[in-house]
Computed example of a mutant assay.
Amino acid sequence: MFRKDKRTVLRLALACALLPAFGAAQAQSALPSYPSRPIKFVVPVPAGGAADVMARMIATHLQAKWGQPVVVDNKPGAGSSVGMAQVAKAAPDGYTIGMGNVAANAINPAVRPESFPYDPVKDFAAVTMVGITPLILVVNPQKVPARTLPEFLAYLKAHPGQLSYGSSGAGSALHVGMELFMQKTGTSMVHVGYKGSAPMLTDLLGGQIDASMDAAATSWPHVQSGKLRALGVSTAQRVDFAPDLPPIAQTVKGFEMNPWHGVMAPAGTPPAIVDKLAAEIQSFLRQPDTEARLRERGVVRVGSSPAEFAKTLRDEAAFYKKLVADAGIKAE
Rank of each mutant, 00 (worst) to 15 (best):
F152V: 07
Q237C: 15
G100L: 13
T290K: 12
P288M: 12
P113E: 06
A88W: 01
M213Y: 13
P141E: 09
Q183A: 03
Q68T: 04
R147N: 15
P150F: 15
I281C: 06
L323P: 09
D214T: 07
P117H: 10
R56T: 01
P271A: 10
V127P: 07
F284C: 10
A217V: 04
A27E: 04
L201Q: 00
D73P: 08
M178S: 03
A216W: 01
Y95Q: 03
G23W: 11
P38D: 00
G94T: 06
I97L: 13
D5V: 13
H159R: 10
F319I: 14
Y165K: 08
V139N: 13
M129K: 11
S168K: 02
E114N: 11
F124Y: 06
V43A: 00
V190P: 09
I132W: 00
E256D: 12
Y118F: 14
L285R: 01
V71D: 12
R314G: 14
P306F: 05
G23H: 13
A331D: 13
P35M: 00
F241T: 03
Q26W: 10
C16D: 06
L31N: 01
P109A: 05
M213G: 09
I209L: 03
A64S: 12
Q282I: 14
V144G: 11
A216G: 11
L277A: 12
G298P: 01
P266T: 09
S188G: 03
G79A: 01
A292V: 10
S168A: 09
P288N: 10
L149H: 05
V299E: 04
F124V: 05
S164F: 07
G196M: 07
L18Y: 04
D326H: 11
K157M: 14
F116C: 01
V263H: 09
G23R: 10
R238F: 11
G262C: 09
Q68E: 08
L180N: 01
T8Y: 15
T148Q: 12
L156A: 02
V82F: 04
V9I: 09
Q250V: 03
T312L: 08
K143M: 15
G268I: 12
D52P: 04
A103H: 11
R314T: 11
L228N: 06
P120R: 02
L12S: 09
L323F: 11
L245M: 03
Q183C: 05
V70K: 06
P270Y: 14
Q250H: 08
T185K: 11
P134Y: 07
A47R: 02
L135M: 15
T185P: 05
D73H: 08
V300Y: 03
P150V: 12
P271Y: 12
L245E: 01
S164M: 06
K40V: 02
L135T: 06
G328T: 13
K253N: 12
H159M: 05
A106L: 07
T202H: 09
Q287A: 15
V263I: 10
M200T: 00
G67H: 05
V176Y: 02
V192F: 12
W220H: 02
R295Q: 13
L62S: 00
A51D: 02
F41V: 00
G262T: 08
A91T: 04
H261E: 13
Q86S: 15
W220Q: 02
L285C: 05
G298C: 07
G49Y: 01
L153Q: 10
T290Y: 14
K330S: 13
A146L: 11
T269W: 11
N258K: 06
G207P: 02
